[in-house]
């Protein structure tokens, strides 16, 4: 589904990603872990198409298409979803209007008619329950005045509404208490099918207790320096990132 080859990217002339190679197949859950400043969020932003970053080398194929040549909205329409680390507050735009516009833009991209109002509302009702989002929140302005937990739940609610092929969850666990973490993780697990894939970006192992990855990658100084199964996360939690750095240097 996703093939990242030798991806290099920089911001304001400072190179952050120094040659990422990663392949994600449908049905898989991947986790990228790494210390602060290793390039985790940069990778998420580059994949979603944030223009602050300049891709200096490499390629990203998503379902056979060169992702890096697509506008951010077209990447979303192709089935890529980024759950933001810091969801943006948008005063004056209601959550409902926002979602309807998003769904219909994606439908238009695919040459489909706008979603019928009844079908849309039924979908909102169903998906809202998935992340236990309060009814009043859907009618309020996007993320405005939401608590940290509500913002993250709203991200997963949007993911459920848009039904992406690949969801990138950028530190979705940060700022969540244990109950909110469980709700968010449950939501993601329920949305998981054999046809879609998830890329978790996280600093801590605890999210991986709830969403179990097939592969764990360690990102360090802009490169993936180690890949393993879910047990790698536990080992990291126990021994810290220094352990990886040392083993890599000695290897």
């Amino acid at each position: 589904m996703l093939q990242i080859k030798n991806l290099e990217a920089s911001i304001e002339e400072k190179q952050i990603l120094k040659g990422i190679n990663l392949e994600i197949k449908r049905g898989e859950v991947h986790a990228i872990m790494g210390p602060n400043g290793s390039g985790k969020s940069t990778l998420a932003s580059v994949l979603a198409g944030k223009e602050d970053y300049e891709v200096t080398n490499g390629s990203v194929l998503f379902e056979g298409k060169e992702l890096l040549e697509l506008a951010p909205e077209d990447r979303a329409a192709e089935g890529l979803f980024l759950a933001f680390q810091y969801p943006v507050e948008i005063p004056g735009v209601s959550n409902i209007n926002f979602l309807k516009t998003a769904i219909n833009s994606i439908r238009e991209y695919k040459g489909m008619q706008p979603i019928p109002a009844k079908e849309f509302l039924a979908k909102v009702k169903e998906k809202k329950e998935l992340v236990e989002l309060q009814s009043t929140l859907t009618n309020r302005s996007v993320n405005e005045g939401f608590s940290g937990g509500e913002k993250k739940r709203n991200e997963i609610f949007q993911m459920a509404m848009l039904n992406p092929k690949l969801a990138i969850l950028d530190e979705t666990d940060s700022g969540l208490d244990i109950d909110a973490l469980r709700i968010v993780a449950n939501g993601v697990n329920k949305l998981k099918t054999k046809d879609n894939a998830v890329l978790l970006i996280t600093h801590y192992q605890r999210l991986l207790d709830y969403i179990v990855p097939d592969f764990v990658h360690v990102l360090y100084q802009g490169r993936i320096i180690k890949t393993g199964g879910k047990e790698l996360a536990l080992e990291l939690e126990e021994k810290g990132y220094d352990w990886i750095q040392e083993t890599e240097v000695s290897a």
Binding site: F84, I90, T101, I103
Partner: peptide, 22 residues
């Protein structure tokens, strides 16, 4: 805000319109 809307599939021109109207 613009990037957030685009990342949800909303075209840039439509996103600008949405933000300005709000």
């Amino acid at each position: 805000a613009l990037f957030y809307l685009q990342a949800r599939g909303i075209k840039k021109t439509a996103a600008v319109k949405l933000l300005v109207t709000a």
